[in-house]
């Protein structure tokens, strides 16, 4: 049990997917202009992560033992179809949210955090329960990083920064500071 709690804390903080492992940086830089969209996208990502974790576990356990070289191709198909399912479900049951997320929903397919989760869960040989905890930790960690970044960027919007810092340069320096803060958790050790 403590192992599960450790996987959760480790993925959420110590090895935060975005700020320490560099996964899902496209949405981290592209979608964090407003906090509202940022955390909604984070939660949508968490849901896709959960679906992917289950799909990847099934594939790993029953299909891919004989054909490890098909892993990348098989995983990306799982991710793409998972995103498709989420898109249809959100469109049917939450039309307002669907309009707000717009183009970012299909773009989850090329979010490396999703594929990265499947690959890491494979290389660390997690079982089904561990994979699910891993996915929840990763998703909440992603949401945390996105919301932190969005709140800071909302403040930068109204600040009087130098002309050269009005583009991505300053955002990257801010990301560096956030990442440094998360490195502070590294003292807790890391789960491998």
């Amino acid at each position: 049990m403590s192992n599960l709690a450790w996987i959760f804390v480790s993925t959420l903080l110590v090895n935060n997917f975005t700020l320490v492992m560099f996964l899902g940086l496209c949405s981290f830089f592209g979608v964090t202009a407003k906090i509202e969209t940022a955390w909604r996208l984070g939660l949508a990502n968490t849901f896709v992560l959960l679906l992917t974790a289950v799909g990847a576990w099934v594939l790993n356990t029953y299909v891919l033992m004989q054909t490890p070289f098909l892993r990348t191709i098989a995983f990306i198909v799982v991710v793409a179809s998972g995103v498709q399912i989420v898109e249809m479900a959100v469109k049917k049951h939450f039309p307002v949210l669907f309009r707000q997320l717009g183009i970012y929903l299909p773009l989850i397919t090329t979010n490396c955090a999703i594929l990265g989760l499947a690959l890491f869960q494979t290389s660390r040989r997690y079982n089904l329960i561990e994979s699910l905890v891993f996915a929840i930790g990763a998703g909440l960690g992603l949401t945390l990083a996105l919301s932190l970044m969005a709140s800071i960027r909302e403040r930068i919007e109204v600040a009087d920064v130098p002309v050269i810092a009005r583009r991505m340069g300053l955002v990257l320096v801010v990301a560096s500071c956030l990442s440094m803060a998360f490195m502070g958790f590294a003292g807790m050790g890391s789960a491998q």
């Binding site: 991505m168 340069g169 560096s176 500071c177 990442s179 490195m183």
Partner: peptide, 22 residues
């Protein structure tokens, strides 16, 4: 070589590039 260094290096490179353009 740690993660924050990656963000910082690219950030400074972009600030420099924006500075040259400006």
């Amino acid at each position: 070589v740690m993660p924050p260094g990656g963000f910082l290096t690219l950030g400074i490179a972009l600030l420099g590039l924006a500075g040259i353009i400006e």
